[in-house]
Nucleic acid binder design. Structure first.
Length: 307
RNA sequence: GCACAGGUGACCGAGUGGUUAAUGGUAGCAGACUGUAAAUCUGCCGCUCUCAGGAGCUACGGAGGUUCGAAUCCUCCCCUGUGCA
C-alpha cells in the first residue's frame, strides 16, 4: 500500500478511454501516458484519434508524437520509454494514468518481455523469403527442430510468429522457449489499478462506424496522400484507416468502399482487443462508454478507494 | 406483352440426378498472442438433442410432378435484371 498508485484504463477503440482518462486526470491530479502503437508517431493525426491539442493542453500527455514517421517503435522500446515516464510522473507526485489500446505494448509495460536477442532484420527477411518460396509448412518444420515447444504452440500458418521464434532461437543459439523460462521483468514499483471499459457490443460497433466515417470527412484521405508522398514506406501507413485511404488513392476502392472497409477493420480490431484484454488479470470491468457520467463515477470511486 | 438471363443458407457466390446441411469468401461469435501487434493466426458458424460417436428435424423463390433418389429434370405461378416491343 506504500507503492505509488498507477491507474490503467484499457478497452477497445471507441470505448471512450480518452474521455475517461481526461476526467480522471483532472479530478485526481493526473498525467496521461498513452499506450498506443500508432499514436507514438508524429504527423499521423486524423487516423490515430489522438487526443485533441486542447485536451493535451489541459492535461499533460506522454508518449504521443515521440517518434518520427519513418522510425520504428517496438513493444520493447515502448515499455522502456513508458517506465521512465511513469517514474518521472510519480516522482513529481502526480498520478500516472496509462491509457491502453495496444494489448502487447501494455503487457510489455506491465509484465515485461523476456530478455531476447536484438531483432535481426537480415535473418528475418531470409526466413520470410524461404516461407514464400518453400511454404509456411517448411518454416514450421525448421522450428520443430530448433524449438519443439514453440512449434507446438505456434500454428504453421502464423508465419510472423514462426519467424520470430526462429529468429530468436537461431541468433541466441538456444530455443526461445528456454529463454522464456528466465522470466519477464514486470513493473513492480507501482500499485496497479486496472479499469476496463466494455460498452455493449452493438453500441460500440455503431460508435466505431461513426468515428471511422468522421475521420474521412475530417480529411483522412488528404492526410494520407501527404504522408504517402513524403514517407512512402512509413509503417503506420499500413495501419487501420490509412491503409484503406491509400487503397482509395490508388483507385482500388471508391471513397464509400474505403470508408466501409475502414469501419470493418476497426470493428474487427475492437473485437481482437477485447479478446486480449479479457485475459488480463485483475481488471475492474465497467459496462459502458468512458464518456458516460455513470461510468466516470464508478471509475472515480475505484480510484478513490485505492488512493 | 415477347425474348433471353437469373432467383442457393445473414450477405456475396460455387454446385447442374445420389458419398450435399450443401466448395469458397465475407460478416458474426469464440480463442491464441513474450520486441514492426491498428499486425498475424486458429476454431465454430441452419435448428434441436447428444453416452460427442452420432441422432432427429428443416432447407437451395412458391406449388405440384418425374425418379428408388432432386438445389440439380418437367409443368404452372411469383419475383429480379437486360434486350425488343
Amino acid at each position: 500500500m506504500s507503492l505509488p498508485l498507477l491507474v490503467v484504463i484499457l478497452g477497445p477503440t471507441g470505448s471512450g478511454k480518452t474521455a475517461l482518462s481526461l476526467r480522471l486526470a483532472e479530478q485526481m491530479h493526473g498525467e496521461i501516458v498513452s499506450c498506443d502503437s500508432v499514436a507514438v508517431y508524429r504527423e499521423f493525426e486524423i487516423g490515430t484519434a489522438k487526443p485533441s491539442h486542447s485536451d493535451r493542453q489541459r492535461v499533460p500527455h506522454h508518449l504521443i508524437d515521440v517518434a518520427g514517421p519513418m522510425e520504428v517503435v517496438t513493444a520493447g522500446d515502448y515499455s522502456r520509454l513508458a517506465r521512465q515516464v511513469l517514474r518521472d510522473i510519480a516522482a513529481r507526485g502526480r498520478l500516472p494514468i496509462v491509457v491502453g489500446g495496444s494489448g502487447l505494448y501494455l503487457r510489455a509495460l506491465l509484465e515485461g518481455l523476456f530478455a531476447g536477442p536484438p531483432r535481426s532484420e537480415e535473418l528475418r527477411t531470409r526466413l520470410r523469403e524461404r516461407a514464400t518460396k518453400r511454404g509456411a509448412e517448411y518454416l514450421h518444420k525448421l522450428l520443430r527442430r530448433v524449438d519443439p515447444a514453440a512449434a507446438q504452440t505456434t500454428h504453421a500458418n502464423d508465419v510472423p510468429k514462426v519467424v520470430r521464434a526462429l529468429e530468436v532461437s537461431i541468433s541466441a543459439r538456444a530455443p526461445m522457449t528456454d529463454l522464456w523460462q528466465q522470466g519477464r521483468d514486470p513493473l513492480s514499483d507501482f500499485n496497479i489499478l486496472r479499469i476496463g471499459l466494455n460498452p455493449e457490443r452493438p453500441a460500440l460497433y455503431e460508435r466505431i462506424n461513426q468515428r471511422a466515417r468522421e475521420m474521412f470527412s475530417e480529411g483522412l484521405v488528404e492526410e494520407t496522400e501527404r504522408l504517402a508522398a513524403q514517407y512512402p514506406s512509413a509503417w503506420p501507413l499500413s495501419s487501420l484507416g490509412y491503409k484503406q485511404a491509400l487503397q482509395h488513392l490508388r483507385g482500388e476502392l471508391s471513397l464509400e468502399q474505403a470508408i466501409q472497409a475502414a469501419q470493418q477493420g476497426h470493428r474487427n480490431y475492437a473485437k481482437r482487443q477485447l479478446t486480449w484484454f479479457r485475459r488480463e488479470q485483475n481488471v475492474h470491468w465497467i459496462t459502458g462508454f468512458g464518456s458516460e457520467k455513470a461510468v466516470q463515477k464508478k471509475a472515480e470511486d475505484l480510484v478513490a478507494a485505492q488512493a
